[in-house]
């Protein structure tokens, strides 16, 4: 039991929350980076290897494309269907192999990235599929390579949808990052468990909830702002004051 009237309570609370927030941001930040680095190409390949896709026949072989598509599809479904609490434990050997330990914030990055990558890959898949196939055709007619089509057409044209998908992904990484707190993964989740639950400090619990809420709000707000900034589809009415002159 923690005594809120103790003279060093507030400074202690502040210290604990500061460390916890730092750890959470660190875990989430690195996991997010890995998620984008792996999930974005994964999503693009998932769409591309579909029938009639950009990479439908890698090295001129449609069966190879089909196999790649099936395998990735399986991995993504697997990653999406195993509950995080189980995945986290099941991945301990892998985490030890990569990080050397399964305790602490660095170790927590592994299960976080593993769960977020398939999630984000699906988001990427949805965003890329929304790109009008006519745009791909136009780029092909200009003599674009497949890489140019991906980098100049598919990704830029789906950017606002990608950003919104990414913000949903971050929110769920933050959610899962709290869960790793239960197995000594650090972060605000561990603060809530250790102080709020095990030592009955309501103030700690409330503070953690408020902090996580603020982090999520800031990220969502930024994502929405960025998405609007990159979307040139429908402009707000005020910029349309000048009616386009005929042709």
């Amino acid at each position: 039991m923690i005594d809120p009237t103790a003279p060093d309570f507030w400074s202690g609370l502040f210290q604990v929350l500061l460390v916890g927030t730092g750890e959470t941001l660190y875990m989430v930040g690195i996991a997010l980076l890995l998620t984008v680095l792996v999930g974005l190409p994964l999503g693009i390949v998932l769409v591309g290897t579909e029938r009639g896709g950009l990479f439908a026949a890698p090295f001129g072989s449609r069966p190879l494309g089909r196999v790649i598509n099936r395998v990735l599809e399986f991995i993504v479904n697997l990653g999406r269907s195993v509950p995080f609490i189980i995945l986290m434990v099941a991945l301990i050997p892998l985490t030890r192999l990569i990080v050397g330990t399964f305790i602490g914030s660095t170790a927590a990055i592994v299960p976080l990235a593993v769960v977020a990558i398939p999630f984000f890959a699906r988001m990427v898949e949805i965003a890329i599929k929304e790109v009008d196939s006519g745009l791909i055709e136009a780029a092909e007619s200009l003599g674009a390579t497949r890489w140019q089509i991906v980098s100049k057409v598919l990704v830029p044209e789906s950017l606002s949808t990608l950003i919104l998908g990414l913000s949903t992904t971050v929110t769920s990484i933050i959610n899962f990052s709290a869960m790793v707190g239960t197995v000594a993964g650090g972060g605000l989740g561990q603060v809530a468990i250790q102080y709020g639950y095990q030592r009955y400090s309501t103030i700690h619990m409330v503070a953690v909830i408020i902090l996580i809420f603020i982090i999520v709000m800031i990220l969502q707000g930024t994502a929405t702002w960025l998405a609007r900034r990159f979307s040139h589809r429908a402009r707000p009415a005020r910029t349309r004051t000048s009616v386009p002159t005929a042709i």
Partner: peptide, 19 residues
Amino acid sequence: RVARRKIGMVFQHFNLLAG
């Protein structure tokens, strides 16, 4: 791809990049 650069194409629905 190189040969296509000699052939420009325009489309019914313009197919311009919105971004």
